[in-house]
Amino acid sequence: MNLIVNGSEVEIVSPPLTPLLHVLRDELDITGPKAGCQQGGCGTCTVLIDGEPRRSCLTAVAAVDGASITTIEGVGQAEELSAVQAAFYKHYAAQCGFCTPGMVLAATALIERKGGPVERDEVLEALGGHYCRCTGYVKIIDAVMAASRGEVDSVDDLPVPEPGQPEVLPKGSPA
């Protein structure tokens, strides 16, 4: 079996009924997708399969042989966040971060599909299967809507601390 993971073709040796989640985490050491409930109920394992968000814990690797997989590692870099990631940062939409990989991927697919600003209801529909135990969701919804409106283009929009200086919190910080 083969997969194209974040643009690179890899050969898979795990047995056919291995959940894609475990192929990514255990065989390929790609640990962005988190192993949460492992029964479809939480959404933190969500990855993009040929561009569509699906639960990697519910997907047998043999069923997606040859497919293109995008994990959070394929979406942005620490130095170069994607629009959705930058919006999550700016809006305090991540706390412990456990739900974040799934949230960001599902939101990215939603915005891509819509191709423009998304409504609150569309965010609720798209992220309805994703649990967050920290943020209370409001900031996540705000972040996704802001990203869809193109409000946060890159991490360059955010204040950068001077070397040796304490980090400057963005405006509107609750801290």
């Binding site: 959940p19 475990h22 492992q38 043999a62 069923a63």
Partner: peptide, 21 residues
């Protein structure tokens, strides 16, 4: 689709002798 059966297999609660995909 595996949405019910895959978690059962992965957790070892179901051990299919032969699986028909």
């Amino acid at each position: 689709g595996g949405t019910i059966i895959l978690p059962e297999i992965a957790a070892g609660r179901l051990v299919p002798e032969r699986a028909l995909m």
